[in-house]
Every structure is written in structure tokens, then in C-alpha cells.
Amino acid sequence: MTHPLLADLEPLRADLTAIRQDIHAHPEMGFEERRTAALVAERLRRFGLSVEEGIGGTGVVATLKGRRPGNRAIALRADMDALQIHEQTGVAYASQTPGTMHACGHDGHTTMLLGAAEFLSRQPDFAGDVHFVFQPAEEGRGGAARMIEDGLFDRFPCDAVYGMHNAPGLPVGRFRLRSGAMMAAVDFFTVTFRGTGGHGGSTPHLATDVTIAQAHFCLALQNVIGRNIAAVETAVISIGSIQGGSPVSPNVMPAELVITGTARTFSDETQAIVERRLTELAHAHAAAQGCKAEVDYGHYTRVLENDPDHARLAARAASSLVGEEAVDADAPPITGGEDFADMLRVKPGAFIFIGNGVKPDGSFHAVHTPLYDFNDDILTLGAGYWVSLVRQELAAAA
């Protein structure tokens, strides 16, 4: 049986689908979302909301006041940026920008929040304020941090902030989240080993060999997990590339070798241990071979931690639409990252996943792949979650 709220949202479906597919056809990279931001701002003003643009670059924030008296305020956040991937979906509304596509569903996230804003603007039967936050540059360019630095929570005070992301492979009509650490801190590193190089056939004994330094470093790196991280903690360190020398000069020992990789952790303490030990091992193994090492270790996202109380509120809002059996409120953490974690460091709140669907044979196209596409069937459900959350969080006092 369809929830009455979802039935009320159904008339918006066709328009929301058109908006989502229009945004999909015109993807923009982080801090370049000028067309998308303009579309969002125009729609929000059409709904009668107070709108401010250019926050943190290309961010947009709109505020809606409930018709009932209340002092509480909450923020709802959606991301707007795309990825540098060449689309291969073949859909009629495929990307018109070569090499760029909405491969993570941010077009859908933006549209669902617009749907909620439109619906609530017609029925503002709540007590307090809702800030609709449309964030730029989630995909590694620091959009959340930029908005915060630009005074997001000072200019738009709120008691809590919430986010949502689609989940391919999770059936339509289902949600999942957890209290505490839900998504990993994502780090990237580059280690450059430098030596003298040399002739590998006639005078290798006169050279300092960066290949031996990197070989020992790569092996030792995997011991960090087993010997420096507590057994009850979770962490991953992976090498993504090793580049050095030339395949057409097999007798030349390279003077420089570069290694890149990623680390995923679920606490600030573990993250710090991994960074420290990786740096120590790089310098130690370089020195053992008479070489030098340079380490560039960067934090891509922080650990995303849901506040327990707000996670329960988020789960309740989803359950009210689809039933408790369709909401996994204790889902296992995942090693993907989200810069919404920065917002949760400033304000309490929760992040939730909404099912993007799975084919009858169990297959699906994952995010960040050329065949991925957001499922328009969940647009009103996602908008309904936001409305349900607002009604719950900003219920008028009895």
C-alpha cells in the first residue's frame, strides 16, 4: 500500500524526471556547476523561497520558514557535481559534454531535494526553518569544506544537518544507515624514491637502487595493518601504481620511482597511525638502499560519523514511508568516502543511503562507472524521505 505522502508527491514525478534528465545531459565538474546552480536557484525562487547563491563557489542555499512558530532549524544537503568519465549508457539524455558524466547520481540527489523544497513550499506545515543546501564539488575538490569556510552554518544556523546518497544494488524502496562511523576516511599518497640510477648490467654495484627500496616498502606497508592497527579496527592500504624506468631500456636502473595508493580508515587515530607509519617506512627503506624518499600524503575525506540520536530520527523518517523491515538501521560500514563528513564535524546529523535498484538477475551498474544511471523511479521516494524528516524534526510542540 502506497504511503499517503508518496501519493501526494506523485504529481511531481514527470517534472522531477525532466529536471533530473536535463541536469544529467549537462554535467559539470566541481566548482564549475554554474548551469546547474542557476537552474536550482531559479526553481527555488519559483517556489517562493529565500535564495542565496555563490556560497563556497557555486553553492546554493534556500530557506523555507514553516507556518507554525518554532525556533529549531535543520539543513538538508544535496551535491551537484559530476565526474570525468565518458558516458556509455546510450540513453536519450546522455551527457552532452564529452568526457564528463553524472556517474554518481548527484543529478538525482539535486532533483530529489528540489522536489522536497517544492512540496514543502506548498505545505509548510512545520515549526521552524529548513535550509536546502546544494553543495558543489563533492568529488574530491572539497566543496563541503569550502561552504563551511564561507560561513555556511553561521549564515544559515541549524540544529542538525542531513545528507542522502543513492545505492546501486540496494532494491528500490529500501534504505540503510548506521550510527557512528559509517563511511571511511579516504587518503591518497604518493611516494617518490630517488637514487643515482645506473647500468644494471655492468655496474649495478655503483648505483643506489630505488627498485629494491620500493619493493621492501610495498611489502612492509601491508604489515602496518597487522602490526600497528588494533585487531578490532578496520583499515585498508592499497598500491595503485608503480612507475619507474623504461621498458625499452631494461638494462638501465631508474634514478626515480613513483608509487601511488590509497588508505581507508574509520577513526582519526587509525588514520594518523597509517600516515605516520607509511612515512616512516618510506624513509627507512630508502635510507637502507642509500636513496631518498619524498612522501605526499593527502586527506581526501574524513571519517563520516552519524550522530546516534539523529541516525535514529533518519531511520524513523524512512521507516514511516516504507516500513521498518525495509530500513537497515545497523548496516555495515563501507570504505567509500563522502565529504559530507566535514559537515557532520560541525553539526550533528545523519547520512542515509536510498536504494537505486537492482535488475531481476541481480546485476547493477555501480557508481563511478560509464554505464551507471540514476533511477528516476526513486525521485519521489527520495523527496518523500526529506519531507518526512522535516515533519518529524520540526513537529510543532504539543
Rank of each mutant, 00 (worst) to 15 (best):
G226I: 02
I242M: 10
E393W: 00
F374A: 14
A282T: 13
H102F: 06
C218W: 00
R391D: 07
G384M: 06
D187Q: 04
G99T: 13
H205Y: 14
F153K: 00
R122G: 11
L113N: 00
P124N: 11
A287C: 05
A230K: 13
E233R: 15
D8S: 15
L6S: 07
R72D: 12
M147R: 12
F266D: 14
R67A: 12
R178N: 12
R34P: 01
V236Y: 03
I85R: 15
R67G: 14
A231E: 09
L114D: 01
G151H: 07
L344G: 03
H24M: 14
M147S: 13
I148A: 05
A350N: 09
V390C: 08
L281Q: 08
S95M: 09
F353T: 00
A145G: 04
V390D: 10
R46Y: 02
D296A: 14
T2Q: 13
G197W: 09
R345Q: 13
L170T: 08
R227C: 04
G201F: 02
H26T: 09
G357T: 06
F364V: 02
D79V: 12
F175G: 01
Q88T: 04
M29P: 01
G201N: 02
D79C: 13
T63C: 03
G57M: 05
A398E: 15
F353P: 00
A331F: 11
F351I: 00
L9M: 12
V346T: 02
I55G: 09
L281K: 09
E52K: 10
T279H: 09
I273K: 13
P348H: 06
T196L: 00
G54D: 06
G298N: 10
L381R: 14
S249I: 07
Q243G: 03
L379H: 10
V258C: 11
Y385L: 11
N71T: 14
R141A: 14
G151E: 08
G30D: 10
I19N: 05
G105Q: 10
S267A: 08
N251L: 02
H299W: 02
F188Q: 13
R316N: 03
A287I: 07
T369E: 01
A167S: 12
G198S: 08
R46A: 13
A94Y: 05
R276L: 08
P308E: 08
E10T: 15
V191D: 01
F193I: 04
V40N: 04
Y372N: 01
D187W: 01
Q88S: 12
A314I: 05
L371F: 08
A314H: 07
F374H: 10
E324K: 12
